[in-house]
Design a protein around this nucleic acid. Structure first.
Lengths: 121, 121
DNA sequence: ATCTTATATGAATATATGTTCATATGAACG
DNA sequence: CGTTCATATGAACATATATTCATATAAGAT
């Protein structure tokens, strides 16, 4: 769309002008769509998906998770940081040990919806 | 976890041995978790999220979408290919024009769940 | 057949991201 | 206080991915 709000790609954009304008009106703000894609991006990594799934069952400390997936403590710690920043996990400290748990009860729902899509492929 | 099924990270893994084993049993297959993360990865891009949202409202051709988001036809076409491979969109040809539409009624639910998380941050 | 229009695609480029390695921090304990 | 254990983090590296550019394909129009 140019500055005047007209479309000048191919002739389709003229024929479909009204549809494009209608869809344009109904689109959420850029910001909202960006945040949504950022959330999905966080969930778009096997390691993070595994961590979240593990935390569905029980809170766990960093070395528990490392042991469970046979990955380095550092790799897990980096990913927990990402999950923490996205407010998907929270933690509590008990001496030297830091226990992580889920911080969002909706994530399970997101996973279940995702699995429905996978099953139907 | 080593080949014998024992954990040898820090002492936590010995203390928490039973929890780790329980969680291990309850984890879905690697394959399933991989597919789930792959799905989220597809949704983890602003352009693809925008395209999907647009298609909630109406089927659209490639140049309509390009015009709507002021992006090149090539960029949109590449992303539609990705979405097509993930079975998230389907298409029909009408002469020279190819119309894309959603191929999964669950995607809307995924988006709604995602938005709930965003709202509560 | 040739030209135009709409779309697809391969290669190249730039950027983002996950893991590793080395090291820092923070807490308990002798 | 120095040591050990659990975790965090910065830098480096390797890989993945989004867009651009040039070009190919596919269908209608002249």
């Amino acid at each position: 769309m140019d500055k005047a709000g007209n479309f000048e790609n191919c002739s389709c954009t003229i024929i479909h002008k009204d549809i494009i304008k209608k869809v344009s009106r109904l689109m959420p703000e850029e910001e909202k769509l960006y945040e949504l894609s950022e959330l999905f991006k966080i969930l778009g990594d096997t390691t993070r998906v595994k961590i979240i799934w593990a935390l569905f069952e029980s809170e766990m400390c960093v070395c528990d998770i490392s042991a469970l997936f046979n990955m380095t403590q550092s790799a897990i710690s980096h990913q927990l940081r990402t999950l923490k920043q996205a407010r998907l996990v929270k933690f509590r400290r008990e001496g030297k040990v830091v226990y992580y748990s889920l911080d969002d009860e909706h994530v399970k729902l997101l996973f279940d919806c995702g699995l429905i899509h996978i099953k139907e492929k």
